[in-house]
Simulated scan of single mutants.
Amino acid sequence: MSDELVFYTHPMSRGRIVRWMLEEVGASYRTEVVGYGPAMKEAAYRAINPLGKVPALRHHGVTVTETAAICAYLADAFPEAGLAPGLSDPQRGAYYRWLFFGAGPVEAAVTNKALGVVVPDDPRMRGMVGYGSLAEVLDALEGAVSAAEYLAGGRFSAADLYVGAHLMWGMQFGSIERRPAYEAYVARLADRPAAVRAREIDDRLLAESAEA
């Protein structure tokens, strides 16, 4: 069974988050760029991800999809990179909390805003929406990134990578309002060598696809 890491992505997708994670891990990996449209929906790729979406990862014959799950998997598969608190570390709870806060409430609330979905101002209706309201989500996130340098104790983790990537992307494209606390937080992350390498790789692939 191959232990090769195979990364399925497109340079203008959530795969950019996984690319950053792979660069932080430092393990060798192979990239398979999957084009939007027929290539991503054909049977060969749907055998990897039935939804016909990127990113996806194959490692030891196992396929992992969903960006937060891939980040969590890589953090545990390569513990020497120090991207997740240990199982006995009390900060493991905060790590899980904020990693999946990003994958759940943040992603859902921001996507709904982009689609023009408005949650009715009715307690019964809001109770059906797991995140409550976009304002509540953004306030909670502001509190988290203001409270400490990183989300899970005093060191950078996959939770910071995932949440930070969403903040960077959201503030760049206007789906998340700019707040001083967010900008100070992402400034601590954006210049990490792995983040710079990942951006350079994906930007180059994006330029190459535009020229093709």
Rank of each mutant, 00 (worst) to 15 (best):
P90I: 11
G82M: 13
R97M: 11
A77N: 05
A77C: 06
A114I: 12
R97N: 07
Q91H: 14
P85M: 07
P79S: 09
L87N: 05
W98F: 09
V106D: 01
G116L: 08
A75K: 00
G102W: 03
E80S: 13
L74K: 05
S88K: 13
V106H: 00
G116W: 05
L87G: 02
W98S: 03
L74I: 07
G104I: 07
A84E: 00
A109T: 04
Y96E: 08
F101Y: 15
P90K: 09
F78Q: 03
S88Y: 09
G86E: 10
A103C: 14
R92T: 11
Y95G: 00
K113E: 11
A75G: 06
P105D: 15
G82A: 10
L115C: 09
A114V: 15
P105G: 02
E80T: 09
V106M: 14
Y95W: 09
V106Y: 00
A108I: 10
F78Y: 15
P85H: 04
S88I: 06
P90C: 11
N112T: 01
N112R: 08
P85S: 05
A84K: 05
V106P: 00
A109H: 02
Y96S: 04
Y96G: 01
D89S: 12
N112Q: 14
A77Y: 04
G104F: 02
Y73G: 01
P85I: 04
L99K: 03
D89N: 14
G93K: 03
V110L: 07
Q91Y: 04
Y95M: 01
K113G: 14
F101G: 00
G102F: 04
N112Y: 12
G102A: 12
A108R: 11
Y73E: 02
F100K: 05
F100I: 13
W98H: 06
Y95P: 00
L83K: 02
V117E: 01
G116Y: 05
R97C: 04
P90T: 11
Y96N: 09
E80R: 12
A114R: 15
P90L: 11
G116S: 12
P79K: 08
A84I: 01
T111E: 10
A75F: 06
A94F: 07
W98C: 03
F100Y: 15
A114F: 15
V117Y: 08
D76W: 08
A114T: 15
V118K: 13
Q91E: 14
D76K: 12
A109D: 03
V117W: 01
K113Q: 15
K113V: 06
Y73N: 01
V118I: 15
L87D: 11
S88D: 15
G102H: 05
A109P: 03
L99W: 02
G93V: 13
L99Y: 02
E107L: 12
W98I: 05
P90G: 09
G104Y: 02
T111K: 10
A77E: 07
F101M: 07
G86Q: 04
D76P: 04
N112E: 14
L83C: 02
G116I: 07
F100D: 06
Y96C: 06
R92M: 11
L99A: 05
E80V: 06
F101A: 03
G82D: 10
F100H: 14
A103D: 15
A109M: 07
L115N: 08
L83M: 11
A114D: 13
Y95K: 01
A84R: 07
P105C: 12
D76F: 08
P105T: 08
Y96P: 02
S88G: 12
V106R: 01
